[in-house]
Design a protein around this nucleic acid. Structure first.
Lengths: 336, 336
DNA sequence: TTGTATGCGTTATCAA
DNA sequence: TTGATAACGCATACAA
């Protein structure tokens, strides 16, 4: 069923059918009615491929690639980006690639699909996916405007929005010092070594300024996306009999929540026995008990800023790549 | 830059370029190399619209329409659907329409866009969006196989996966009776009146079987997607001086979390002073303090089942619509 | 207000 | 192994 069939059934030319669909005001009223009737009767709809081939236009779709949607952090990103994009008539589609993250072949196929399908006008990359050594070299294949959120600073050719992590650590240390803490532990999700090391570098390099202590054995690794892993890790730690730090600096709030619950379940008090600091400030952290002290990342702003950069590139593709840093803040609540 | 340009630059015909791209084994080795070189040099990629027009094939994309991504419930749905779809080479794109939910014109535009773009092979509708009176009549315009998760039972023409809500209430009442509770309050998100009424019907109709009490003034309305709203509502309630129920039945876990926190902040104990029961069992509920007693919806299975039905319809579009009910379970934890 | 004819970028058939 | 060419379904300039 194509435009020709409709034209024949309605006793008009294909041009008239096309007009009826795209510029109804240019068709005489009763012809329009007749054509529309035939269209409805046959449940006909235009072939989007032919339409776009004949007269290319924007698709109105933006895709946001997301490594693991299990962390609410990412949908706050979506929320931010969507709020800006929708103002300009774009729709945001979140493409979760969690399933393919550890499989190079599948990851390549994802890009391939993204490149072959032309259904979107631009791309927002989030998380550390583009640090993946299988993903990174493929990116040029996707010949569309794109922006990255929180990528590797070494990718200078990529437009990106970043978090000023150093400031976050600085604020945290300042708070810890004021509260009289000294012995700091760090728990990271450990997904991508380069990303983790970047954060650990900041954590170590500011240590001297505040006369705080982090021993090598106080750097712990857990899973970045499963509360359960963090819970079990902490539970084991508490039973180990090792000398433990006073404060646990968790590299995201999911980790902090698991850690807190393990501490409580073993009969300790927070922050009396152990203090916990998270990172991100996802919406749950405020309501958790104890409420979470955390390094708040301006998540929605991250999304909004990325969207604005992308919109810019969409209208002016030749803009030189830019990097925008957004500052985190420290939200002091009960856990520390 | 199109296939003709590449052909000219490589000194071959367009047919050869096309073959080089689609059936490289049918091209002589050095011709292939020469063509590929030109392609790389010019960052050329095939026009997906022309390609699909000339030889239509599947797009490998499935879109899942989601009313509000802020509730982790939905990404567990995504996770389930994705795990099945990815096995069959499909990619899942989550399309959050939160921004457009209360604006009929925008909602129509969403459908319009979905119908005009041909970039996906099928659709999964979630939540109560298709109950929206502006959305529902538009659905036939999207001429693609689709499945709904948890829709209105009156839509018999729509393939759907549903939760057996009545069983959930039954299990809850059984538990409450065993624990000796009698006076029950209900807090609903109140987004869609038809959906809410359906649940309230079950809640009321089973009351007699267990000799439990729900007064009309113990039915409270809050926001379905913001913990903050539920927190404030409960806070006001506790200060009101009204006679309150012993147990609060919350129609999703987000509501329950806000309610719990308000109870604690006012110095009451859970479940001693007030008990709370949630619904869904999102991943956070287990780690919340107190851990949440909740009616667990088999969320991932919901997603998986919807995906399987869709895959079926994709290969066999004329299958009659089916309805599958999945049973919830009651997870008893600390809050009740 | 409507119809005719051409082109959009690709694939596939057929012949060379 | 390659090339010429006819589709694919639609939009639009131009003519009527």
């Amino acid at each position: 069923m194509n435009i020709k069939d409709i034209a024949r059934k309605a006793g008009v030319s294909t041009a008239t059918v096309s007009r009826a669909l795209n510029n109804p005001e240019k068709v005489k009223k009763d012809t329009l009615e007749r054509v529309m009737h035939v269209i409805d009767d046959n449940q006909y709809s235009l072939n989007p491929y032919a339409r776009n081939l004949a007269s290319p236009g924007r698709t109105n779709n933006i895709v946001m690639v997301i490594p693991n949607l299990v962390n609410p952090f990412f949908f706050e990103l979506i929320k931010g980006a969507e709020s800006v994009l929708s103002e300009y008539g774009y729709y945001l589609h979140a493409h979760n690639i969690n399933q393919h993250l550890d499989n190079p072949k599948k990851l390549t196929a994802v890009i391939e699909n993204l490149g072959n399908e032309g259904f979107f006008d631009g791309l927002i990359l989030t998380g550390s996916i583009f640090l993946n050594r299988h993903f990174l070299p493929q990116i040029p294949k996707i010949n569309k405007p794109m922006v990255a959120i929180d990528p590797n600073p070494s990718n200078n050719e990529l437009d990106s929005v970043l978090v000023d992590e150093r400031t976050g650590i600085w604020l945290t240390y300042e708070h810890l010092k004021k509260k009289g803490y000294n012995r700091i532990g760090v728990i990271h999700g450990g997904y991508h070594i380069e990303l983790t090391n970047r954060k650990l570098d900041h954590i170590h390099s500011l240590l001297n300024d505040f006369d705080l202590t982090i021993k090598d054995e106080w750097i712990y690794e857990t899973s970045y996306d499963t509360i359960e892993h963090s819970y079990r890790m902490m539970d084991r730690l508490l039973q180990s009999g090792n000398t433990l730090p006073e404060v646990f600096l968790c590299l995201n709030d999911l980790i902090a929540i698991g850690v807190c619950r393990a501490i409580l379940d073993r009969g300790h008090q927070i922050p009396k026995d152990f203090a916990v600091i998270g990172s991100d400030d996802i919406s749950f952290s405020k309501y958790f008990n104890p409420s979470l002290t955390t390094i708040k990342v301006p998540t929605e702003d991250l999304g909004k800023t990325a969207a604005r950069i992308l919109l810019n590139k969409l209208t002016n593709p030749n803009l030189p790549p830019q990097r925008i840093y957004l500052p985190p803040t420290l939200i002091v609540r009960e856990s520390c």
